[in-house]
Simulated scan of single mutants.
Amino acid sequence: MSILQELLFPPPPSLYITAMSVVGLVSLSYCGLAEVRGKHLQYSKFWNVQSKGKGKEGIKLSSRAGMLLLYTPAVVAGAASLAFYPSPSLRFWLLSWALTIHFLKRVLEVLFVHKYSGGMILDSAILISLSYFTATVNALYAQYLTVGTPEPHIDLKYAGIVVFLVGIAGNFYHHYLLSKLREKNDKGYKIPKGGLFNLVICPHYLFEILGFIGISCISQTVYASSFTIGTIGYLMGRSYATRKWYRAKFSNFPAEVKALIPFVF
């Protein structure tokens, strides 16, 4: 507990933020466990897994439309905090920029980088979009509640900027490699190569985790840390399911390629 007190602001005097810290951690971790058990959020290669053989499929979106729905509300929330709200502290300003850049990058990738092969179920799109939007708003509100309180004894915000930039750059690079796997109008899947794809099947998730760790270090709030831990749990489950999918689809999938962490997992 004393180590946490050195690293984090005290829990805020807000039952809402305290409750949402728990809800975010538990719900994201549960989604990660569900991925391991084969109950996937229906996007990317898993976009129609649950509905096959069932009468009710749900409303389908194109992948591009679904991905834009995922990220745009969070971009708007982050940009609004920069445009209309005077930053009460350097941390708040840095956090606003980090969250805005994180989700704006995703929107730009949806528009100009990603290539698509399937679609997305509306229910999954709404669930993920709400998660990102509420997480952005709650992270900013939790940061606002720290204004005027003593800073953590160990200042991580500058280290957090570095980790965030490494995460966002690595995530973009591996998304770019994925986009180069397909020629125009090619909708098939191939085993990714290059970068850390030679070691793990989801290096883009690994760098996404680094990005959220960077955001947590910039913020140093209980809420941001809880959301990051939950995100790690979800992406671990998603990467495990992704590796399992590739191994089932490709008989020549390299056994030494792990899911998320090189040589380990």
Rank of each mutant, 00 (worst) to 15 (best):
I17V: 14
T242A: 06
T231M: 14
H204T: 14
V162F: 15
S131L: 06
Y85L: 12
G237M: 00
L41V: 02
M120G: 01
G195P: 03
P254K: 14
G195L: 09
N198M: 09
S131N: 15
I101C: 02
P86V: 03
C31A: 07
I17G: 07
F9T: 03
K56P: 06
P88Y: 08
P192Q: 09
L8A: 11
W93C: 00
I126E: 05
A125F: 07
S129E: 10
L206Y: 07
F253L: 08
I229M: 15
I215H: 03
S225K: 04
F172H: 13
F84G: 11
G211T: 09
G78K: 03
D186E: 13
M236L: 13
G194A: 10
V137Q: 12
Y205W: 07
G53P: 00
G195H: 09
H102E: 11
L69Y: 03
L25R: 06
Y223Q: 13
L260R: 04
P152F: 04
L177R: 06
I209H: 00
Y189Q: 05
L235A: 01
F227Q: 08
C31S: 13
S225D: 08
I213M: 07
K105P: 11
F227R: 07
L178A: 10
V36G: 02
I161R: 06
R64S: 00
P262A: 13
G188F: 06
Y173R: 13
P262Y: 12
L122A: 09
T100Q: 02
H174N: 12
Y234T: 00
